[in-house]
Simulated assay, not measured.
Amino acid sequence: MTLDPHAAADFVKEAAEGFVPRVGIVLGSGLGDLADKVEIVADLNYQDIPDFPQSTVEGHAGRLILGRLGGMPVICMQGRIHYYEGVDPKDLAIPIRMLKILGIEILLVTNAAGSFRKKMGPGSLMMLSDHINFTGLNPLVGENDPAFGPRFFSMEEAYDPTLREHLAAVAKELKIELHEGVYLHYLGPNFETPAEIKAFKTLGADAVGMSTTPEVLVARHCGLRVAAISNITNLVAGMSKTKLSHEQTLECAKLAAEDLEKLVIVFLETLKRELLKAHLRSTENGND
């Protein structure tokens, strides 16, 4: 059965009548507490939203929260869906297209990831500068829907340079160390072998995880600006004596959760001012 993002969007619009989000936020494993900081307008379970894929992984609550965070109208996905859960890859386009229909202009994605750098250990934050999609999967494979975007599109600046500058400036202001690097998406659900890790390092990866590229691909296809942050929960296989596990991921995600929350909230406050300035400049130019 083909899922319809319009059906999902219509349901959400009815639940939060008159509310138009500007920023969509996707929260990864163990990072859902940020949603509790939202001044809630509507709080929906994924299972109640028609034509919406369901999250089945521990640490992903499966809630859609609309409200204000840092003064910005946001819609927050508390939990995401992964390829390894066995869904049709096309279904991963539904949440982001729904967010686009609801009015967002910017997508902020977070994830939990393993680090290739000893100096970027558990508790660190890494802003994505680029990614490597090692899964061989893409939610946009198949017939293109021109209502959302073109058949072919560029990924040269998948992670918006201006948004990255804002994030870096906010982190500096808050005295939060924000690393920057390339994220590699591994299919999972198993963790990587040491040989795979060696290959990924050669490819240029700085961090590895099992998510994010589907959302970013769909967002860029439909013209959304994207920023993304990895919460580093472990060093990759072969760099630490600690055995990798999902339980460890959830536990270590808490190490940088406070910094991540501060960073996102102040980023949204700053972003609100910048969007207002851009709107005023646009209005002034229109009146010339």
Rank of each mutant, 00 (worst) to 15 (best):
L99S: 01
G70W: 02
M155N: 08
N285A: 14
I104S: 05
G238L: 10
E14G: 14
P150V: 08
A278I: 11
R151Q: 11
L203V: 13
V266Q: 08
D4P: 06
T162S: 12
N111L: 09
N190R: 10
L34D: 11
D91P: 13
P194K: 12
P139A: 01
N138C: 01
A113V: 03
R80I: 03
L125I: 09
I132S: 06
N287P: 15
T193H: 08
I81Y: 01
R220E: 03
V12E: 09
S230K: 00
R164M: 06
D206Q: 10
K254P: 13
S245A: 02
E173H: 10
A171Q: 04
T56W: 01
V12I: 11
D88Q: 15
V182R: 02
V216Q: 03
N144R: 02
K175G: 05
D145V: 10
F52A: 10
S211E: 01
T193Y: 09
L174Q: 08
S29L: 05
L250Q: 10
S129Y: 13
I65R: 07
K100D: 04
K13V: 14
M1R: 08
L99H: 04
L244E: 03
L260R: 05
A205F: 12
L31Q: 11
Y159K: 00
L99E: 11
C76P: 04
D4A: 09
H82T: 06
T242V: 03
G181T: 04
A195L: 05
V264I: 13
L163H: 00
V208C: 14
P21C: 07
